[in-house]
Design a protein around this nucleic acid. Structure first.
Lengths: 222, 222
DNA sequence: CCAAAAGTGTTTACGATACACCCATGT
DNA sequence: ACATGGGTGTATCGTAAACACTTTTGG
């Protein structure tokens, strides 16, 4: 006997605890970093882990991810994408719907908890993580690197306008290697994801630079 | 107060009905087709829909997808990948973890139910579907086309050995356009995903063709 | 001998990469 | 004047695409 998708919930059958889990990336100090919190409850009490939590009543996974993101960083309207749904993370029956988000560290205000406040950690120097969160971070990182090549995801890591050099810094931090300045500029402009604003930057003790902006500040594929 | 990923399930909080949903593709009669079943229960009773159903006790989504696939087609050990977790499909509180699978139609034996047996439908001529299953099929199709370009997923749509022309048929059916024979052959061989077996095909009233096999009959990216 | 499918090379266009010097500004 | 980062062009390579005829076989 076969049932079909969207079956009416039957009490006690197929009911599972569902959590979300958010891999929040930023580029800070020239490095790609991830937001981690410390668990206040067992198991893994005191261990670093990804932010997350159970769905609230009536709430879908997307909404829960948005909520968690805002609780931890104060930001909204950033790049947020569903990653994968894990099942065996905690060897219980629960599901964890994982997301990844990209935030501009300058616009994020981390939750100021008394003890065990959240913190940015460089992806290449993470502490031991609760459950199998390493696996989730790896997965998110692969996806991020892939998307960087053919989408405008980086918009969410930068202020509205920025110089070509700052943009390149972001790409280099995420890809983990240096890029050629001329080729990079050519590629960005020919992809057509950014446009010059006409204004110039005044900061710094050097030649003022052209400012650019993303054409679209929301997810677009090319 | 923030909780962390992998939280212990609290009775009644965050518990949701969880279903799986499987988009089963095959290439038949020169066309890419999807397996559909008809719903035996309300809502959408009698409508065509994707196979799926609630998780059984103790079962994870992956296992449930494998089980469903086998129930409907009799096959195991085929390409099966998690696609996306939908929430708003049926406007209830339930989650649907969607998968897509690729099966060789010659090896599949569809479940022989008395009424409303499952059937293959060409993707470009689907009937109206229950819930928002069209959206799921679209998503699966995009992913399949993308993966075809840089992976060996097609192994799961063909017998162990096959001619270059049969392989090309599969690619053309999925991509929905004709490909150049010489370029196709060159690309397949230079990607290194298939190798000649040395044997030749004897079927047909034409020149016997070289047989090829996939190097790996399991998911590999390139 | 005819129909049907197998098999085979070359040319062209485009995008990706490698590479080094001059310029404008503030101190 | 000098230190700092901004800004620019060309040559090369490799991959992707376009393109048509000959060969082998069975009937």
């Amino acid at each position: 006997m076969s049932t079909t998708a969207g079956e009416v919930p039957v009490a006690g059958v197929g009911l599972r605890p569902v959590a979300v889990l958010v891999v929040i990336f930023t580029v800070r100090e020239g490095k790609l970093q991830v937001l981690l919190i410390r668990r206040s409850a067992a198991p893994y009490q005191g261990w670093w882990s990804l932010p997350g939590g159970l769905l609230s009543p009536g709430e879908g996974p997307d909404q829960a991810a948005v909520r968690k993101l805002e609780e931890e960083t104060g930001v909204r309207d950033v790049y947020l994408e569903q990653l994968y749904t894990f099942w065996d993370l905690d060897s219980r029956e629960g599901l964890a719907v994982a997301y990844f988000a990209l935030v501009d560290a300058r616009q994020a205000h981390l939750a100021q908890r008394q003890e065990w406040p959240p913190a940015w950690w460089p992806v290449d120097g993470l502490p031991p993580l609760a459950f199998k969160n390493e696996q989730v971070v790896d997965y998110a990182l692969r996806r991020l690197r892939a998307k960087l090549e053919y989408s405008n995801v980086a918009y969410s890591l930068l202020p509205e306008s920025f110089t070509m050099s700052r943009l390149q810094d972001v790409y280099e931090a995420i890809l983990g290697r240096r890029l050629d300045k001329r080729n990079f500029r050519r590629r960005m402009l020919s992809l057509g994801i950014i446009v010059p604003t006409g204004r110039r930057e005044k900061e710094g003790r050097h030649r003022p630079a052209q400012l650019y902006a993303f054409k679209e500040r929301r997810p677009v594929l090319f």
